[in-house]
């Protein structure tokens, strides 16, 4: 019986940015546990491991480095509820620092 404990539920909710009250934490904990219980069948299938990225029967597809002809004009104030000086403004995260090698 897979048991998803409340701490795991809270951790997953934090990752998914979903605010849950304690009742929801318990509810989801039991629902997820019962659903995952049915997933034992996944173990019974004999599967072939393979080297390299799994091929996806989809042909490769790249686009030319040209500006797309029918670019939509999206007025900047339509982009977000709070736009100032053309910038999208949101409440600040407490921790400074970006993700992509710059802050």
């Amino acid at each position: 019986m897979t048991r998803i404990d409340p701490e795991t539920v809270r951790h997953v909710a934090r990752l998914a940015r979903l605010r849950l009250d304690e009742a929801e934490v318990d509810q989801l904990g039991s629902e997820m546990s019962s659903i995952l219980d049915h997933f034992a069948a996944l173990e019974e299938v004999d599967v072939a491991r393979q080297e390299g990225p799994t091929p996806r029967s989809i042909d490769p597809f790249l686009r030319q480095d040209v500006e797309s002809a029918d670019q939509l004009t999206l007025p900047v104030e339509s982009l977000a509820p709070d736009v100032r000086a053309g910038l999208i403004v949101v409440p600040r995260l407490d921790a400074l620092g970006g993700k992509n090698g710059e802050s």
Partner: peptide, 10 residues
Amino acid sequence: GLEDLYSRTR
């Protein structure tokens, strides 16, 4: 703050 905006909105 931002975390609240995300988690409450969703």
